[in-house]
Design a binder for these strands. Structure first.
Lengths: 292, 292
DNA sequence: CCATTTGATACCTCCAGAGTATCAATTCGC
DNA sequence: GCGAATTGATACTCTGGAGGTATCAAATGG
């Protein structure tokens, strides 16, 4: 028994006519009749009542017809789906992202992918930048939206957007009314920033910016989450340099000011160079066609 | 592509070893390798990443493995089920019955069948005896529990039980206190009975009984349902001869009395002689082993 | 009663799939 | 580092099963 036999059976069950069914199967009647007989013999079940004039399904044949149709449908779906999965049009994509970079970009990316490949189940995972590289290399993430990191090996990256840092201070802070702020203005400020182990890209950018301005930054507090940094600035416990894209909706108590010659950094899509998941290729293809 | 190919694929996906998988398929490694290559070629999809030392599933291969397993399971279930249907162990059985005969017997029959063949979906339909023959011949019923009917052609029957008629009268009726009742006692009674067109067996039995007693019965009312007959007797509108098996639980206002030399009739299981439904054969087999 | 239709049978052909022998590449132990 | 062993790929051969053609047998209908 094979799917071919099932197809023969279905053809005969639908036409109830050996010659017509054989024609539908692109073959002549005699071998077709033999195949039907072979099916009945191997199953040990009479599927058709037939005299040389009429063909009619038995009760068992009717049941078998239903079963064959669903088996054949499943069979063809399997063969079709495997091609879709291979092409990246179907499957699962675990996409990591970090709030340090994700503002506005991840929703666009999700929309883009779910429009172009609705059968790809997208699993979103928010992580700290430092965790993302590790998860990608362990294949626990397929791709991620994160900060550009020159040290990333074994990772392919694609530029998504360029962002710059901006100063945020409490509304009562003297710098709140400054038009622009240079590095020197930060000399005696209590800086709040995530530790280098969590967000190396931003932390090194801040360090470089201060060094260029000839000052030594004083990092008073080092929380891990962007959200916490903003909260602490709101409490007046210090000032911070955060991505411009995160400076909307800071609330009443926090004011953001542009920096003179601000540090810039890339927001990138990245994935393991030898990703096993075809959906990753698809995602990169889609991103190519897009400009943020 | 065929189920055989799927089996090969699953074997390799489970062992990740060509020689072992080939052995499991009872064949040698070279043709097995070729079949795997052929699958990948016809699908146009790489299912395994392999060098001469390691074999590992691709993402598409993993999906395909799941799909293949369910397709193969469905395939085998279909081949198995068709045999069960043919043997009468699975399928549907539309069983008709009539309240004139069914008291106590149908529940036993249902229990019997659902114990012996739980995969046979039993559809019960209560009908008048006259309808049952017709529905059986039209194959709108597969089998039925009804009154023995000597005129039934094209029907196979099997004896289930023998029943006899009994007189029921209103509690205030003079015959209510009679020990036994003969046909002569019915001379001037208003008889209530279903019309011959509805229950020919009982009606002719009643007719013969009266004729044997030398009286001409007076059928005052001719409702179609047994239940209605009993209600009308309860209203004192006449007397009736009904199956003994229906004489329990008649209520306060109705009294049943045995007849002298009562008319007897068979309760039978019957089905079209050339029934297409194997479950019917099964049912008859089961009934053979049973005595009511 | 004969022509037509339809499924079954007999016989032949051929290719897909299985077998054997062998090769090539990688790994591992000494 | 080199040889032995393991493992998948390749080349060639062969066989069984699936399909083709010709034909028959039975049933239907004008």
């Amino acid at each position: 028994m094979d799917t071919r036999h099932m197809r023969y059976f279905v053809a005969l069950a639908e036409t109830l006519h050996f010659s017509q069914a054989a024609a539908r199967m692109n073959m002549s009647q005699p071998p077709f009749s033999r195949q039907i007989a072979a099916i009945e013999k191997t199953l040990g079940v009479r599927l058709f009542e037939r005299n040389s004039r009429n063909v009619v399904l038995t009760t068992a044949g009717k049941h078998f017809l239903n079963d064959c149709r669903s088996v054949l449908a499943g069979f063809e779906a399997a063969c079709r789906d495997v091609q879709l999965v291979a092409s990246g049009a179907k499957g699962e994509l675990k996409l990591g992202f970090t709030m340090y970079a994700a503002q506005g970009i991840v929703p666009k990316l999700v929309r883009l992918l779910s429009d172009a490949a609705p059968d790809v189940r997208l699993v979103l995972e928010e992580r700290l930048p430092s965790d993302i590289d590790e998860l990608l290399l362990e294949s626990r993430l397929d791709a991620a939206v994160t900060l550009g990191n020159p040290t990333a090996r074994h990772l392919q990256t694609r530029f998504l957007a360029r962002d710059r840092l901006r100063l945020i201070v409490h509304a009562d802070h003297p710098l709140a009314s400054a038009e622009q702020v240079g590095a020197q203005s930060l000399t005696s400020e209590r800086l709040i920033a995530a530790p280098a182990s969590v967000v190396p890209t931003l932390r090194s950018a801040i360090g470089a910016y201060c060094a260029a301005g000839g000052i030594v930054p004083h990092f008073a507090l080092e929380p891990r989450l962007q959200h916490t940094i903003i909260r602490l600035v709101g409490e007046g416990l210090g000032v911070a340099l955060i991505p411009q894209s995160l400076c909307s909706d800071l609330g009443e108590t926090i004011v953001s000011r542009p920096l003179i010659d601000p540090p810039e950094f890339d927001v990138v899509l990245c994935a393991p160079t030898a990703s096993r998941n075809p959906a990753v290729g698809r995602l990169f293809e889609l991103v190519k066609q897009l400009s943020f």
